[in-house]
Design a binder for these strands. Structure first.
Lengths: 210, 210, 210, 210
DNA sequence: GATGAATGAGATTTCATTCAT
DNA sequence: CATGAATGAAATCTCATTCAT
């Protein structure tokens, strides 16, 4: 695996001080990006916040863009992992139990760092080879969801499972993000309930629920 | 409503040449922002693209930020107007007809300039007084939707109309935006159908649909 | 008298509206220069303050420099005129009466617009052909003073009348300017007295004064 | 003494390279200001003249204004130091010896860089918190002078020592500045003599001089 | 390696001046 | 003549990136 010059981290340091600095830089960047916006995210400020120097920053990232991409990838990885773990654990559960649990999980995952999430979303569209954060996270979520629905194909109403997965993932995702911005819905059980209803009623053949 | 100095356009150009320049600048900015991203949107390039000079640009906008805000407002106005017109015309229609029509309208409205929309969305969160584009457009959409649902309160299932409106608006909005980015769903009648289904099944008491 | 292009007013308008605008521009410039400093004195602001348009301003002054020079000249003219009138009226008076009266007059003349005076002083040194305001006003004052002292050559102590004039004029001038900036000495009779003393004791052979 | 943000140098450079750059910038600014005037003193030219880059300049000075203020302060410090050294060395000397020496010193100190001095004088009046160079240097000189005169209170004529100090300092200061601009008086012993006479005759009870 | 001073291209913004209306 | 929109050169300032220490 040869590092393509320019877009990827110079190296992915695995151990000790190197790893610590690498992460510190990424953390600092995440913090500034989410709390103060992209305009404020200068390499010098990142270094200071990370407790290092610009020079060291450039030891790990060949340029600013690569840093943003690394940030996106780390964030995406976190979210994907969380989502896949939940879904895996619910693979055998029936729809009526699995759906609210997944919805809940996705809502929770957005409370972590919604601002960072939002900022990363756009930023990378014109930076990192056109692939946005949503693309990465949601594409993966669609795959996982689709697998789950395929396994239940005859329990569910929609004929086109792929399209249904796409719709549901993006719906829940968007609502999670919005909820994160609206205090009255953040961590509101009734809201989670409604979201689960929305999904279940779309999926089930005979929605005599609630 | 007092104009905060520094954030609003310098003057409201009323006649001929002025108005033309003002609009040309906004158009140029929109164009560059959506096709080339924020990093490329420099005041000089905007002026050149608009067929004017930087000086003229600064005659109408005290700084770059105010320009971005004006862009957001103009775009929001357009979308809101479109949405409200549709809903108004459907105020008397029954759910089963109104919902698909509205969904269709929202999807259509996003095909106009999805990149501009996406870029504006983030940009303004750390710039213009913290109000994002979504906030403006969707808040208005929620109000309109809620009014419509209130009028049909006993036809619909959800008890909390406010929350239902919030959920539906953001769902359709998000799906519209995503569809704009996915060729296979953009202008796809089956997709529109599914979205309408999603909404209708959530709203209706006895979904004897399909 | 052909106008040299570039440094002199386009024309010295003698009558009616022209003269009024010309003066309004100069007044506005003086006002801004003395209250807000040179950096703030832009041609546009001058025009607005004067109640005209930049276009009209450029009808009377070929460029900004010529405006500053006109300002200096008008101010110098005013001061010189005041000074010469006083001295002329005291030509026959004895030293002990004339000196305090002149000192008083010079002090008074500086209370008119000390900030404008101070600002003009430097400004023009690199602008208007190197001649500063001081040069103009004080050079003239030296001439007048010298004439007065020559007429009393045998009443006074200093042998070199030219040098004495130079010293006295600049001394009184400087003290006037300083007094304008120090509330405790502005319009303070004891201060005027001391200044008169300073001059008289320098001039008189047998200073049995006070 | 809290550093007001925006008006003070960014950092106090202590070692080697930093200090050298810092000084080089100030020297370059002084040079341009005195020889070519404020209009020519652009940050880029300063940097070039200093043999650095604009970037470095802005590493030490947050903006142009702070640079001008630093310039004023350094210049004022130099003059004050020179003046106080002279006066201290003459503290015990009798009036008739001290006064000419001091006058001579002040005249000399103005020959160093009269243009810089003159330009700084005005410039800072509207820039650096309203305190002009004169204010700083002369205020200090008045204090020192007053202390000297207080010690000789019964040798001297004027009752109000404070006012006398004010008058004398400003007189000599102004004459020094003027002399710097008039070749025929610059470094002219007769001129120095006259200035000393002026001061002595004002101070002494029985001026049986010359 | 780590550091942070130095670099300079380039971004934002101002303002004297012109000229179509 | 008056107006003020338009112009664009030039000024101030920022920040990604390099490199001597």
């Amino acid at each position: 695996m040869v590092a393509q010059p320019g877009k990827t981290p110079r190296r992915a340091p695995r151990q000790g001080r190197s790893k610590a600095t690498f992460d510190a830089v990424l953390d600092a960047a995440a913090q500034i990006l989410s709390h103060e916006g992209y305009e404020q995210m200068t390499t010098n400020r990142i270094a200071v916040r990370a407790g290092t120097s610009v020079g060291s920053l450039y030891q790990y990232f060949p340029n600013k863009e690569s840093l943003v991409i690394a940030l996106r990838d780390r964030h995406a990885e976190k979210m994907i992992e969380a989502f896949e773990t939940i879904v895996a654990s619910l693979m055998e559960a029936p729809l009526a139990n699995a759906v609210p649990a997944i919805a809940q999980a996705m809502l929770a995952s957005h409370n972590i760092d919604p601002e960072l999430h939002a900022n990363l979303n756009i930023l990378v569209s014109h930076l990192g080879g056109g692939r946005r954060l949503v693309d990465k996270v949601e594409a993966r979520a669609v795959v996982v969801t689709r697998a789950y629905l395929e396994a239940r194909r005859d329990e569910i109403r929609p004929a086109n499972v792929e399209r249904a997965s796409f719709i549901l993932v993006h719906t829940v995702y968007a609502l999670a993000q919005q909820a994160a911005h609206h205090p009255q819905y953040r961590s509101n059980p009734a809201f989670v309930n409604d979201v689960a209803d929305l999904v279940l009623r779309f999926l089930t053949k005979d929605p005599a629920v609630t």
